[in-house]
Design a protein around this nucleic acid. Structure first.
Lengths: 160, 160
DNA sequence: AATGAAATAGCCGCGGA
DNA sequence: TCCGCGGCTATTTCATT
């Protein structure tokens, strides 16, 4: 994995497209080279399917950490939340009911970067306390919920 | 959203492709009808981009619940985990360090189905206790981690 | 391994039903 | 709303560097 691969994967993530032509516009890499690189990334298991779902483990961001954030802030919650979202690696964030105020999931490259993450959170104005859970293994990471349902259940639940 | 839309979205999720031809093979729906339907789903905001990322809120699975599972089981953890993964709606599952044993995220259609989910978990042999957190709002749900990093950081972290 | 250019395959939208 | 057909563009292959 070199810089060019990373630029490519970043472009895919940002643009939300796998079109070689659009990726060429963004990165300047020739169309057929993009094709060639993407094939290699597919073989390496970084890209999983036609929809460019990533295997974060193979990509090098296989460390998942779950952080509960307890906060005391002024103003609307989503304004405060922007500060949490600004931290690099934060892939999911939820505003929650109950004891905790926010639950944040982040994808990191190594245990070393975990420290950086926590201290960034702790440094945010209004954050009172954080509680981190390290994950040992990712058992499932499915970005399209329908895959986890039976067709019948899905029809039942989603049709009017 | 009717049954045909749901079949289509399920096929996309299962096959991991957005190719009208492949979706035709799976569903039997004519290629140009698939195209027509997908356009409508795009307009409705259910499909977000070229990569067919879903907006679970618009899809009707906008209720996210986070469940901590404390368990006492025999045998390897991933064998036990299969039981957790069998529950409909479970999109993410992690084996964790520390007090809790597993953290599970699920996408549901309504608060009503939350009860079903919890009782399914509680019914699994070996599950001692569960602790559920309801989410009020999803602030971010990004399935491709590189989108959350600066390009420079990413190059630093991922290149050899 | 990387690229340019040709060939092919699949996508898209029109228009009728 | 659905779907068959045609045009057309993007993808993919291949030969060359």
């Amino acid at each position: 994995m070199d810089e060019r691969d990373v630029r490519l994967l970043k472009a895919i993530s940002d643009l939300g497209t796998g079109s070689p032509e659009k990726l060429h516009d963004e990165t300047g890499i020739p169309v057929s080279t993009i094709h060639y690189r993407l094939n290699n990334l597919r073989e390496a298991g970084v890209i999983e399917n036609d929809l460019y779902d990533f295997d974060h483990e193979a990509l090098g961001l296989g460390v998942t950490i779950i952080v509960e954030v307890h906060a005391d802030y002024e103003g609307p919650y989503d304004e405060f939340a922007d500060e949490l979202l600004a931290v690099e690696g934060v892939t999911e964030a939820y505003f929650t009911m109950g004891e905790t105020d926010f639950v944040v999931l982040a994808r990191l490259s190594s245990s070393d970067t975990v420290e950086r993450l926590i201290s960034e959170f702790e440094g945010i104005e209004g954050v009172e306390r954080t509680n981190s859970t390290f994950t040992i293994a990712t058992l499932r990471d499915e970005s399209r919920a329908p895959a986890t349902y039976d067709l019948e259940t899905l029809i039942e639940e989603l049709t009017d």
